[in-house]
Amino acid sequence: MTIDEGKLQILAAFCELAWADGRVTQAQADFISDLAIEMDVRLGSYLPVLVMGLSRPPRAKVENLADIPIDEVERFQLVERFVAMCLLHEGLSNEQADVLARLALQLGIKARELEEMRRRLC
């Protein structure tokens, strides 16, 4: 997987996390599109992914985040962003926590580290 493909997978993962509660909020859509720009993904790449990812719940789970060629620090930062998006609204729901834990595990972040992260960002 190339880094460009990996960035699109990351965006798809954020979309999946955004749908965890059954609906996506505008704040989450803004968060993900800001992230796409921050990651320097081309408009022509990220927009179709976001349109598809935000218009309907994902039909398949993202399961290949481990294949993205990013280093440990970047993985940690990425999971921090996952947590930050979950905390845009009133706390972390059970459904969000499940999806978050699964995505974080793919990136090598264990439950204990995830909990520390959540406490820090709260």
Partner: peptide, 25 residues
């Protein structure tokens, strides 16, 4: 991201009606 295939027929869901998002750029 694309090879998910067409979904089965689904009844109209409330989330369809609630959909109103803007992707800024």
């Amino acid at each position: 991201l694309l090879e998910k295939g067409p979904p089965p027929e689904e009844p109209l869901q409330e989330l369809d009606k609630a959909l109103e998002l803007r992707i800024p750029f």
